[in-house]
Simulated scan of single mutants.
Amino acid sequence: MTDVLILGGTGWLGARIAERWMDAGAAVTCLARGGRDAPYGARLVVADREDDGAYDAVRDRQWDELVDISSRADHVRAAVAALRPVARHITYVSSVSVYAANDIPDADESAELAAAAEPGDPYDYAREKSAAEAAVRGAFAHRGAIVRPGLIVAPGDPTDRFGYWPSRFALAADGPVLVPDDPDGRVQVIDVDDLAAAVVALGGEWFTGAVNAVGDSLPLAAVLAQARAVAGHTGDVVAAPPEWLEVQGVSYWAGPRSLPLWLPDGLPGFATRSNAAYRLLGGRLRPLRETLQRVLEDERARGLDRPRESGLTREEELALIAALRADGAAGPARR
């Protein structure tokens, strides 16, 4: 039986990876701080990665596969140093944010990485991931996979970014919905269950190297149109110019008072990464509509009007639409 150690394994992505490994017949141990249960069937070892002896309880046996998803380089450095002698292979889940620039469409895994963070540097996600990758390569040369996902989506997403759109179209019903007037915007997502399956497949094959785990690059407008269709929205779609939205304090990408997935100009390489290697390795990409349907079902169960980590409240949105129309800045309403 394959013995798998997942550093984490109780959160959104980590739990999916644990479940997929157990589906494949592996014995799974999750090392985490506690506070959340490990997936049913997995063993939980409670440990704090800030502690010097965090890995003492899992260094007494050989592990066929080690999985880490941390975005703290110091945690990854300590883990690979402690577990290198007892782990045959590692799969590290990094991010496409690790790249130094987003200026070249269809860039592949050979693109330059961000400068690796040094101990004591202010926290920077891209540089932390870069430093973590370097630690993995240094400790597990020729026996380490680095998986670089883009925007991860699906039911349960704690960031609330992707789910905002099917949820909002469903909540609005026959009322108006505000969207960015961004004909050049792109979106590139991967379903969390497709990503988890890829992590398990690459680990099971002891793959060595890096791979972008990203979906196909799609126009933002087309993604929003699919979200609207899945939700059955029949009201107006009100497009706001990016410069007007910025003046109104509407943020890009994520967070409160934002229009999720919308990006500023000048990032032609963002959401356009090559997924050729991922596809060549057999990585699955389910149809976007299937993911949207799954997400909408989850959003309905959790409440379409619940407080969200990302997006506009319905009250904020309606106020913005009224102001946009009063200013005469709205594009033609679409039905």
Rank of each mutant, 00 (worst) to 15 (best):
residue 218 L to T: 11
residue 123 Y to I: 06
residue 106 D to Q: 15
residue 299 E to K: 02
residue 319 A to P: 05
residue 136 V to F: 06
residue 296 L to S: 03
residue 281 L to W: 09
residue 62 Q to H: 09
residue 231 A to H: 06
residue 235 G to Q: 00
residue 206 W to H: 12
residue 224 L to M: 11
residue 169 F to I: 03
residue 243 E to G: 02
residue 301 A to M: 09
residue 28 V to P: 01
residue 141 A to S: 13
residue 114 A to Q: 10
residue 320 L to C: 03
residue 278 Y to N: 09
residue 320 L to I: 06
residue 198 A to L: 13
residue 61 R to E: 11
residue 73 A to W: 10
residue 65 E to F: 10
residue 244 W to Y: 02
residue 279 R to E: 11
residue 48 D to E: 13
residue 290 E to K: 14
residue 151 L to F: 12
residue 259 L to D: 00
residue 172 A to S: 07
residue 221 A to R: 13
residue 269 G to I: 07
residue 328 G to W: 02
residue 318 L to P: 09
residue 12 W to T: 04
residue 302 R to F: 02
residue 16 R to Q: 14
residue 163 G to F: 09
residue 84 R to D: 13
residue 114 A to P: 05
residue 17 I to L: 08
residue 125 Y to P: 11
residue 282 G to Q: 11
residue 177 V to H: 00
residue 325 R to V: 02
residue 222 A to C: 02
residue 280 L to E: 15
residue 334 R to C: 03
residue 132 A to R: 07
residue 317 E to Q: 15
residue 142 H to I: 02
residue 77 R to I: 10
residue 260 P to Y: 02
residue 44 L to E: 08
residue 147 V to H: 07
residue 142 H to L: 13
residue 77 R to Q: 15
residue 18 A to R: 04
residue 190 I to G: 14
residue 204 G to P: 01
residue 304 L to E: 00
residue 140 F to C: 03
residue 5 L to F: 04
residue 268 P to I: 04
residue 40 Y to S: 14
residue 131 A to P: 11
residue 273 R to T: 10
residue 205 E to K: 14
residue 201 A to D: 13
residue 14 G to W: 01
residue 25 G to R: 05
residue 311 G to M: 04
residue 227 A to F: 00
residue 214 V to F: 10
residue 334 R to W: 13
residue 323 A to C: 03
residue 119 P to V: 14
residue 275 N to M: 03
residue 335 R to D: 11
residue 156 G to L: 12
residue 88 R to K: 12
residue 59 R to H: 01
residue 308 R to G: 10
residue 123 Y to R: 12
residue 121 D to M: 10
residue 245 L to D: 00
residue 11 G to V: 08
residue 198 A to Q: 14
residue 68 D to I: 11
residue 54 A to S: 03
residue 85 P to Q: 12
residue 76 V to W: 04
residue 178 L to S: 00
residue 169 F to A: 04
residue 323 A to Y: 00
residue 312 L to Q: 05
residue 191 D to P: 09
residue 166 P to F: 05
residue 302 R to N: 11
residue 309 E to I: 13
residue 13 L to I: 15
residue 231 A to Q: 04
residue 108 D to L: 07
residue 134 A to M: 10
residue 85 P to N: 08
residue 283 G to S: 10
residue 122 P to Q: 14
residue 303 G to I: 02
residue 79 A to D: 06
